[in-house]
Design a protein around this nucleic acid. Structure first.
Lengths: 190, 190, 190, 190
DNA sequence: AATGAATGAGGTTTCATTCAT
DNA sequence: CATGAATGAAACCTCATTCAT
């Protein structure tokens, strides 16, 4: 057995993500992925059981990357506010740098696939967010609401704004970002 | 000449929406739609040029329905706060009553299709929201930010919460909704 | 019963011939014919049993037209040579005036359809040619060969030349036609 | 990698030609070709881009075969008359041996396809005919007419006669062929 | 007579996947 | 490991034809 050729594996992942973004999830076929990745159709089946498995693995990889970037340089000893701002900045940075990863995720997450896959484990990837909000709640900084609610009012809107700028091509500048952070904070603060 | 059978047209729309929700956009084929709608494959092509056209028309229909429900009973003479709460209540009502319409929209809007279709006109469907926020800004009730930002911090989170409850089957009760409205208001108020 | 609407019948014939010439026999469908003729699909079935019947009738009509034009002004009392030249001139005139009729015939006659239809009767349409050649043979003007052979060496080449000019768009002038007639005569003369 | 199976490629060509002859160009479908060739529909698309491409390639192949057979054993040092007779005999031989190839060609060439394909290069396949006639003209053997005219009066009629015998099943014997050659010669000789 | 509506059958093409090298 | 060849199944769409008005 020769060893796994990571160049090809990577090329397949990239081609998948690009195609899903360019032509959509529904139009993305194995043949098209193979062609874009410059490998044979059959090669894809060496690394992935079938099409759905390829999608699942790509999804997990991308979600892992997002988690990694989101908590990059996170220091548990910092204050809640500092951690809050770090996460948001990192998130926006991720969305802008890995534009295609982000849009790929949005497309998959709004399809019935994740429910079919029953992925509870992915929540753990975002554990630091939960911890940060829990701490904040205990310190009386945040409203005593469900953490999902705090997320939906503080992080989601920033992502949505960044997505909007991504789609219409306009830049999401610091001034706008700071205004957003203020609104996030206003929404969730006690 | 046989007369146009609107039952069939309606059945095709419904089948499309249901299937996109059940098995996803990618797996929804004309054959499956036809079978579910109890019509022949060919019948679909009498009313729609091709598969994409069917999706586009379904999308527009559903978006129209959402707009209609969202501003039902809207009274321009009411205060901004009353209008704000009316919209949010109507929206949540819509999401819960027309669950499948809402999830269908989410799936389409997160695919590359809308960009391909270049639909600027659909923004006009939500004109009353823009007017409400503009009035509120002029009255000094809201932060002097772009209306899109106000929307993203007040309406979007509610939709996201409702969607979450839809997906995990738990009810979205009045207490939760009121807490959400408070957060929305906190986020955007001046 | 209302009376037969010859406008529509004619429009259907014309559309059929035009389409067969434009896009070919294989691509010509009832729907396309109906659209080009500005009638409903179903209207075609009032006048023709089915698609093949439509083609057969169109073929017979066109072949009849060709025969009619070919022997227009033919005078049985004229000399064989005069009749010979009259036929050739008429034929060339027909090909150039009814270009589409002629090319339609060529397409049908080189398909397996005529054999399927077993049309012996159409030979009778060209009786005057046979008579002319028979008379010529009896008068010792022509070679004592089968009349089909005489036709193939005198009339067919002219048709082929005319067709060539039709297809590449160059004119088939009198000088060329006369040269052709000389060659025809040389080929068959005793 | 499985190696290219030329048996299949050949079977597809043969099935195409046979079907076009049996049921006609218009009724010849990919499915029928695949069934007759004992391959899957999809296999055809490995070797041919689409149906039209299959037809074009089949056409070119058959035309090449015809050219090859037509000039088999041609010796440029022989006299014009010898070359002339060689070509005609070879052509008749081809028509009779490769009956289906010939009838396939006739059907395609009388459809609008060749014009759509803009094939100028195929003329070069018949270069030796042009050369033979040019030499004959220079030697004063033939009339000083366009070579196409000489072809149309000497070779085409023989083909037409052979085709006639093919279609009604009667043999085209040597005596008839010789009579035809005499007429060909009479038509074009100076 | 005329036609829009409707459809089962079948068209071309692409799909996801497996096989043999 | 890698891949071109191969394919059954199914995709989208159009066909010829019939029906009800």
């Amino acid at each position: 057995m020769r060893h796994r050729d990571d160049t090809k594996v990577e090329a397949i992942f990239d081609a998948t993500i690009q195609l899903v973004n360019e032509i959509g999830f529904a139009e993305t076929s194995i043949s098209k992925i193979a062609k874009k990745a410059n490998v044979s159709n059959a090669t894809i089946y060496i690394y992935h059981e079938n099409k759905e498995d390829l999608l699942l693995k790509t999804y997990l990889k991308v979600k892992g990357k997002m988690s990694e970037k989101m908590f990059q340089g996170m220091d548990e000893s910092r204050t809640v506010k500092e951690r809050f701002e770090s996460i948001i900045h990192n998130f926006v940075e991720f969305i802008q740098t890995y534009k295609e990863y982000f849009l790929f995720l949005e497309q998959i997450m709004n399809s019935p696939l994740p429910q079919k896959w029953c992925l509870d484990d992915t929540a753990s990837l975002f554990q630091p967010i939960f911890e940060m909000f829990d701490t904040g709640k205990r310190q009386g900084l945040f409203k005593q609401e469900d953490v999902r609610m705090l997320i939906v009012y503080s992080i989601l809107p920033v992502a949505e704004l960044a997505k909007g700028h991504l789609k219409d091509g306009t830049p999401f500048n610091d001034q706008q970002l700071n205004a957003a952070i203020v609104m996030s904070w206003d929404a969730i603060k006690a």
